[in-house]
Computed example of a mutant assay.
Amino acid sequence: MYGVSIGIKPQNTTQLIARIKKGLPLKTFGQLCKNLAVPEKELCRILKIPLSTLARRKKSGQLSFEESERVFRIARLYDKAVELFKQPEFGRKWLKEPAWALGDVAPLDYADTELGAKEVEDLLGRIEHGVFT
Rank of each mutant, 00 (worst) to 15 (best):
S52A: 15
G116Q: 09
P107M: 01
A37G: 05
E40W: 10
E121I: 00
Y78I: 10
K118H: 09
F72Y: 11
Y78R: 01
S60T: 15
C44I: 05
E40L: 08
A75D: 05
V38M: 15
L47W: 05
L32C: 03
E83M: 10
K93H: 13
G23N: 07
N12L: 07
K41F: 05
P39G: 13
R57D: 08
A81R: 12
I8M: 15
A55Q: 15
C44R: 10
R70H: 14
I20G: 04
Q15C: 07
A75W: 01
P98S: 00
A37R: 12
L16C: 07
Q11N: 14
D109T: 08
E69Q: 15
L26D: 00
V38G: 03
V120Y: 06
L77N: 07
T14S: 15
I6P: 10
I17D: 03
L115M: 10
Q31V: 10
E69Y: 15
Y2F: 15
F90N: 03
H129L: 02
G103F: 07
L36R: 06
R76S: 14
K48D: 15
E128P: 02
E42C: 09
I17M: 03
G116M: 00
L108I: 09
C33W: 04
M1C: 09
Q15F: 07
S68H: 07
W100L: 09
G23R: 11
R73L: 05
A37C: 06
P107S: 04
K27N: 12
R126Q: 11
L24W: 02
L26V: 04
G125F: 01
K27D: 14
Q87F: 07
P98K: 02
M1W: 07
A18I: 04
S60H: 06
W100A: 10
K59A: 11
I49L: 09
L43A: 03
T28Y: 04
A117D: 05
L123W: 04
K9P: 00
K21N: 13
K86F: 04
T133Q: 11
N35M: 01
V71Q: 01
A81S: 14
